[in-house]
Design a protein around this nucleic acid. Structure first.
Length: 264
DNA sequence: GGCTTATGCGCAG
DNA sequence: TGCGCCTAAGCCA
């Protein structure tokens, strides 16, 4: 489930599992073989995330840059690992655990300058302490593009994906087509603060949690039918708050969902 | 078991 | 604008 919270959770996990120790890196599939050989045996100094990008910083200056795309995944096992199943792009072995990377859009070897290049193309990341929401507000407040489009623009805010986009706008009763110029600074401040809080919960829980307790009809957290979203993937169903029919359309090439009555 | 869909994004055209 | 990546969950039978 790769929105920004997933990558930050992985960075934290990889830091725990592999940090400050030598890592054996390989590419069972072969597509990452030369790069894997270049870092294998080196100490992983730091695992870090910015938006949906993950960076493994190795001693000596080499960095493995990973972007999961739509369906990339990491799975982990305690050692010894079983033989690779499917197309494993990268396998990492630490002291006690190993992990397999499958299906990423990007898995490449870069240097610290390359990290700077990637980060230079990314906006404020709600999950980073050094995030500057002022830069995002400067872009949004001057643009006639819709807020629904700009939330998906990683150069404006890094880490928000298609689920958080629809759900965040519902939570703030903002119609997704509203131009950035029509957003107030107070509305943006609330959106940002909520995004920071929601994505932190996402990191902690390992999944996107957006429905307020008062809207889940008291369903216990373990209930299978507990509502997980207000609008995402609920086109044609009744709004949980007002009962209106949830709408959908493609915006920025992705399915957008919203309530035509709650959101203005 | 098969089929559909997808939480992303770069690139061809 | 639409394709490719080529995984995995959810749904149906």
């Amino acid at each position: 489930m790769p929105e920004g919270h997933t990558l930050h959770r992985l960075a934290r996990l990889h830091q725990q599992r592999f940090g400050r120790a030598p890592v054996v890196v390989s590419s069972p599939q072969g597509r990452f073989a030369d790069a894997a050989a270049a870092v294998s045996g080196r100490v992983l100094r730091k695992a870090d995330a910015w938006g949906k990008h993950l960076f493994h910083h190795y001693d000596g200056g080499a960095v493995v840059h990973v972007h999961l795309g739509l369906y990339g995944t990491f799975t982990e096992q305690p050692l010894p690992m079983t033989a690779p199943v499917g197309q494993v792009r990268m396998r990492m072995l630490g002291a006690e655990f190993g992990t397999d990377l499958r299906g990423p859009t990007v898995c490449e070897l870069i240097d610290e300058g390359g990290v700077d290049d990637v980060v230079a193309r990314l906006g404020a990341d709600p999950l980073r302490r050094d995030a500057d929401p002022g830069l995002a507000w400067a872009r949004i407040s001057k643009s006639r593009r819709s807020i629904g489009s700009m939330l998906m623009d990683q150069t404006v805010i890094a880490g928000v994906g298609n689920v958080y986009r629809s759900e965040l706008l519902f939570r703030h009763r903002i119609e997704p087509h509203r131009p950035g110029t029509q957003l107030t600074e107070a509305e943006f401040a609330e959106l940002w603060a909520d995004l920071v809080a929601l994505m932190k919960v996402g990191v902690r829980r390992g999944k996107i949690v957006v429905v307020r307790p008062e809207d889940d009809h008291g369903a216990p957290s373990y209930a299978a039918d507990r509502p997980r979203t207000y609008v995402y993937r609920r086109a044609g169903e009744a709004c949980r708050v007002c009962g209106a029919t949830i709408r959908t359309e493609v915006m920025e090439g992705r399915n957008l969902f919203w309530c035509p009555d709650c959101q203005v």
